[in-house]
Design a protein around this nucleic acid. Structure first.
Lengths: 200, 200, 200, 200
DNA sequence: GCGTAAACGAGACGGTACGTCGCGTCTTAGG
DNA sequence: CCTAAGACGCGACGTACCGTCTCGTTTACGC
């Protein structure tokens, strides 16, 4: 004799196809749980409860905590980190500020930190993290590269490594819980570009 | 019915004082477990089993997984990251290589990555991580600063930020699982110092 | 995205009427699953998979595991338990042997044991079991009653109770997993009829 | 960050030894759950909740639902089924009445029926059931055997088979949910002993 | 020199979460 | 209206660890 739920469930199957409402409810719930209770409170059970979804449904579509985390992060990725002020120095400083604001001013920061944590125990998450960080670096490198035709940087400048140092600095601050001031962002740009351009 | 162990335990109390053998056995076991089974296999139960120690003993002296992790890492810290070749450029490149070798060539890497992961859920670990990273940056800043009296860097160079970018790059590579080649280490030094010195 | 099955399904609807092929396929599959995987492996899901049928189809036509079980058992009921040798003693012994052979030599035994198990948690199944056992007893009582006009039993003999003891003995052996030898069947008849007839 | 229970648990460990309070609490809870919610509501989770015990504790000491069930039944076994009235006929009738009363008038009946059900899917439970039923038969056989020296039964009477038919009749009635009246108990004794003794 | 106190191993305990299975219901899409 | 298919909410499964607790033993130290 199976158990009959006392209250009607809020969502039902819509037939032999994935229910997008469920998908959204789970992602919303995951983001909320992560924000409110932190990484250690981020359990599949808690997400399922908050989403009024069944655990098997979550495992069916996401398969692991890391996969869920990544999709939550993807949903929250901002489209435009890279300002275009016509000055590499201002662009770099602005990007650093934008990135830190994005991480600290929304749920993106806790989510991303959770992905980094997960990546230390889970190879799939690690590869996803690596891919994401490389994407970010490429993004930044393109932004820096715009300075070459403008003469702000010499053609031989290694934009890729400069970009990686920028993302790494932001990551390190995020992970260790120290914020980055606007002034520091400016100084970082100055320091990094000192060899090529003059301080503003 | 009290349990009669079939085999005699390997260690006993030595009276009303902490047993240093137990301390060492626990730290050794923790390092071994972490290395062999990874962060997800690093549980207090596993450490206790491997150390033939009781769980309460571990909780008494370390209090949390993070504390144990930190002490394991402290034990493995290397004394000398900073070469002194007389050239800032070579020093920076050498330090990057040393640091990555230290992380990848011993159990220090997995241990440190575990601390970073733990720090994303645990404020104590986060503060410890921050303190450690700032120590590391100061260390590197001192190394870079030696170039100022030698004329390799102008007095106004922001050694602290440069140092932080170096440690951040290494950290990012460690966390995302990409190693750093000797060539990249050299290029990093070149890129960072481009404004002040000439490539070797 | 609706699923596109790689292989064409074996059966389709035949329009607005029950498909007898489906009925047979489900009953066959149920019997097979029960025989091969036992009562604990007998799940609606397993039957549906084995029959290539949808779960709702099964629920529509049978409504519960017990109902399915009962129909499987009905299909396998033997028509003729009661031998007619002209001797009550031989008839009783023969019936016991026939019944145990039927249960142990086909899928009827596991199916019936499953019904008994189901009946302990499910009132419908319990009533069905009771009805079946009373039928069986009546059957046996009629067989025994044939001895009265022949003078093997006195008119006042309680054929119903004797019949019930016979079916009960067989049931107990079935449920506890002990088989009943031919010799024991004969002894049972002797013991039961000792008061009325002489041993053969 | 592990969860701290808000309320203090009612029972704690008493050291590296089994806590008899826990044992009793689990058995009490198991009996209560089985009685109140029936076999289908008898889940390890429900027992654990009712006993305020952890599931792992139950699995550690009982290992399976069947084992728990058997221990609950053992605890409730009555010591004395077999009356001794000096008359086999009255003894048999009395025992049947006692047995049915025991099953129907306490939690022993539901518990025993659950064991029978479990035994149809679980070999361990089946062997335990078989052993229990054989014990019961031996018990009854001894009772019947007392009639031989008194001359109520001839020495060649097969007490074992008679005993088994008695227990089987009671079992069949229990399992199919039909009670056995005092009158039927008397008739059963009469029928079984008709060959040897005269009705009372 | 002897009792006390602390450290230790062991492991039981109440819990939470894990990831999986089956339940019974629902909707779709196709005959 | 029937069918196959399968998503869904739900809850139980049996397991792994968590962090706490008590036990009995062993030793150093203070009275």
């Amino acid at each position: 004799m199976p158990t009959r739920p006392v209250t009607q469930p809020s969502r039902r199957s819509i037939g032999a196809q994935r229910n997008p409402e469920t998908r959204d409810a789970v992602l919303d719930a995951a983001e909320q749980v992560l924000t409110e209770r932190g990484l250690s409170g981020f359990t599949i059970e808690a997400v399922a409860r908050a989403a009024r979804a069944g655990k098997p449904t979550i495992y069916k579509w996401w398969g692991s905590k890391a996969a869920l985390l990544l999709e939550v992060y993807d949903r929250n990725k901002i489209a435009e980190f890279h300002p275009n002020t016509g000055s590499v120095r201002r662009d770099v400083a602005g990007l650093l500020v934008n990135l830190m604001d994005h991480w600290e001013g929304s749920s993106a920061g806790p989510v991303f930190r959770s992905i980094v944590a997960e990546a230390q125990a889970n190879a799939d998450a690690r590869h996803a993290l690596d891919a994401y960080l490389q994407d970010l670096s490429r993004y930044i490198a393109l932004m820096i590269g715009r300075g070459i035709p403008r003469g702000e940087l010499p053609p031989e400048a290694d934009c890729t490594l400069m970009a990686e140092m920028i993302s790494a600095l932001a990551l390190q601050r995020l992970l260790s819980g120290r914020s980055l001031s606007v002034k520091e962002a400016g100084l970082t740009a100055d320091t990094l570009l000192a060899g090529f351009t003059q301080p503003a």
